[in-house]
Amino acid sequence: MSDTAYSNDRPKALPQGGEGGAADFFELLKPRVMSLVIFTALVGIALAPGGIHPVIGFTALLCIAVGAGASGALNMWYDADIDAKMARTASRPIPSGRVAPQEAAVFGSVLSVFSVMTMGVLVNWVAAALLAFTIFFYVAIYTMWLKRRTPQNIVIGGAAGAFPPMIGWAAVTGSVSLESLVLFLIIFMWTPPHFWALALFRSGDYEKVGVPMMPVVSGERETRRQIMLYSLVLVPVTLLPGLMGFAGVLYTGATALLGLGFLGFAFRVWRAEAGSRQDKAAKNLFAYSILYLFLVFSLLLVERLLGL
C-alpha cells in the first residue's frame, strides 16, 4: 500500500531553482528603478544640514539601494503570476523560469533584513526605521494590498518611491523635517502623472491581468483629466524648496521652466482624443516625466555643491 508513495512514476527530480546566475538575481533588484532611488537619496543626504562622513554617507546610500532592490525582488516574487502575462514583464527572471519564486522570496527577505540592520548599526536607527517602513509599504501595502484592488494603487503606493530622499536626510540628521517632507511630496505628486501616462499606452496589458489601473477602471478620458490635475499640483510643489529657503534662484527659475514644459506635455495628453494621438502624447509625457524628476533633483544637488 505504502509502496505507491515511492513509485518511480513521480517526475524526475529536477532541483527546485538553481537555474539562475548572478546576473539574474541582480535583475530581481530592478536596477533601473534603483538608480533613481539612489540618486534621490543622494540629494536628500547632500541637502541635509550638518553634513556626514563620506564613508557613513556611502553606507547609507548602499543600504537604501539594497533595501529598494530587496523590495523589488519581493514585488517580483508576489507578482510573478501577472508578470508572466504582460509583454513588458514576461521576460523577468521568475516568469522566464531563470529564478524560482521561493529563491526570489528568500533573496528579497534576506536583503531586506540585512539592509535595515546595517543601516541601524552603522548609520542610525531613525533612517533604519524609515527604510524598514518603506520596504513594508512597497511590498505589503502596495504590492499585496492595493495594486490589485484599487485604481488609486499607484497614488498611495507612490509613497514608497518617495521615501528615499527622506531616508537620506534622516541618515544625516537622525530626524524627519519639513524640508525632507517637501522632497517626499515632489516625488509623491510626480508618481501619478508618470505612471498613468504609462498606463494609458499600456492599458491593454493591465486589463488582461485584472490590475485596476485608472484607464481600465475609470476610462481614458478620466485618466487624462487626473493627469492634468496632478500636474497642476506637482508644479507648485516643486517650487516649495525655493519658497522655504533651502533652494536658490537657479533652482526656482529652472524648475519653473521645466514645470511649464511638464504642464505642456500633460495638457497635450488631456486634450488628446483616444487613439494613436493619445498614445503618442502619453509616451512623450512619460519620457519627459523621467527627465523632469532627474533634472529637478539634479538642480537641488548642483546648487548645494556650488554653494549657491
Binding site: D3, Y6, S7, N8, K12, A13, L14, P15, G18, E19, G20, G21, A22, F25
Partner: peptide, 24 residues
Amino acid sequence: ERHKIEAPVWTEEQIRKRRQRNLA
C-alpha cells in the same frame, strides 16, 4: 530499487551557474 530516491542530476550549465552564485 523501488525505495531509492533519485539524486538530482546537475547539468554542466547548472554547476557553472551555482559556482557563479557562490562566488557572488
